[in-house]
Amino acid sequence: MSRFLRREALRYEVRVVGPWLFVLPLFVAVLFAIAAGMMAFKQAQHSDISNMLMAGIEGAVPLVVGIACAAIASREPALELQLALPAQYRVTVLWRLVLLLAWAALIEIAGVAVLALAFPWALHRAGSGYLLTWLAPLLWCGGIGALLALLLRNRAAAIALLGVAWVFELVFHGLMASYGWTQALDLFATMFSAAASFWLANRLELIGLGVLFLLATWFYLRNTEWRLRGEDA
């Protein structure tokens, strides 16, 4: 385990995965921050500005992280070499996923901090757990992105399912909030239903599902025969 914590090993993992995958969530977060800044400059309503920030925190960054996780779980140019190493390949993949998720978490924490300082009321509706509201969609998107990419052996298809689910929930947010079983899957509960009674349950359920997806990914990575068949293309 110790090998992972060495600085050079970390640097190699980031370079092997592609530094641009790490730049992407930062870029998206900055984009939303700029949009919110412009709205503030144009003296938009505070609720609109805070919504814009929350859309980045709860919507855009988790989506881009899900896309990145799909890429990490499915792309491996040196697959056979990795599989023949004493270091377990699935540990390596999990570590890469953890690195990306941790990096995204830092970005999200910065985002929430900005939001909490600028518009404290925007978050308070959801209780004191609000500071961790991003964790739920982040884990869910990351987990399902990784798992689908493995199961389908096709990154584009996995991202297609993730993207459609994401847009679907955004459009039909009212529907998502109105059935018991869809409430559990509502990615954007803070944006649209922060005051609802199911908010906390929803966050916890999403976190649980995300962890479950990551666990399934972990188990599925054992199936080397499946991976060796290459992409479904």
């Binding site: 641009w20 995958l21 992407l24 998206v28 855009a60 989506l63 881009v64 896309i67 990145a68 799909a70 890429a71 990154r155 584009a156 991202i159 297609a160 993207g163 994401w166 847009v167």
Partner: peptide
């Protein structure tokens, strides 16, 4: 890059 395009396209 494909994932970048996919993100932009979804948005």
């Amino acid at each position: 890059r494909v994932p970048v395009y996919q993100f932009l396209f979804t948005g």
